[in-house]
């Protein structure tokens, strides 16, 4: 019998073939720079915000990896959804995410973003964050330790450098109808502006 994170083991074999870099040198260089300057939006949405100060300050000092906190979504590359999200917060999170400029990534922190966590039966928290927003990296724990958060950033760096078309922001553009439908199911149609208008003229 397999041990550990089961479906992960089953998919290990497929993955080895899939990551074959077809990037040019310039693309690789751009991806490298992107991976080493990740600006994190300082929005503590939930419990996880309490482990962010240790991660960002002298003890764990994530600035070694090029990760810096910034104040506004317009400058940010990474949104950390730190734990549970009430619908009221999720609305603001979506607005913040849509204001961020691409390429942008989401890190989901802790059990609550994956399957509801402790608040699985709470009437006021969402259970699956990836229904509403494309999540690029999940970090295990409740609370995740700062080391685990750093592990999430390291894995995200690898993902950014692979520069695959499965990155969350591309998913959000191409599968916007799916995400929007889920958002509307929760909030109703009137409350959120439509994100499509932002990239109406873009060549998808």
């Amino acid at each position: 019998m397999d041990e550990g994170f089961i479906p992960y083991q089953q998919s290990l074999e497929d993955e080895e073939q899939s990551i074959k870099s077809t990037q040019s040198v310039i693309e690789q260089a751009i991806a490298w720079f992107r991976a080493h300057s990740m600006f994190v939006l300082a929005y503590g949405t939930g419990c996880g915000a309490i482990e962010m100060p240790p991660t960002f300050t002298s003890r764990y000092d994530i600035e070694r990896l090029g990760v810096v906190g910034v104040a506004t979504p317009r400058q940010a590359d990474i949104l950390i959804v730190s734990g549970y999200c009430s619908p009221k917060t999720l609305k603001r999170v979506i607005r913040s995410y849509e204001q961020m400029s691409e390429p942008k990534y989401i890190i989901g922190l802790g059990s609550c973003t994956i399957n509801g966590g402790m608040y699985w039966d709470s009437y006021n928290t969402i259970k699956k964050l990836d229904d509403f927003l494309p999540v690029d990296m999940y970090v295990n724990g409740c609370m995740p330790r700062p080391e685990a958060l750093i592990e999430g950033f390291v894995k995200l760096q690898e993902k950014i450098r692979a520069n695959s078309s499965e990155a969350g922001y591309i998913q959000y553009r191409t599968r916007y109808a799916h995400y929007r439908a889920n958002q509307e199911r929760l909030f109703g149609t009137q409350v959120q502006p439509r994100y499509e208008e932002n990239f109406a003229g873009m060549n998808l």
């Binding site: 939930g46 549970y84 009430s86 608040y119 709470s122 009437y123 928290t125």
Partner: peptide
């Protein structure tokens, strides 16, 4: 923004 309904849970 952080209401989880602890008292209900």
């Amino acid at each position: 923004y952080l209401h989880r309904g602890f008292e209900k849970l």
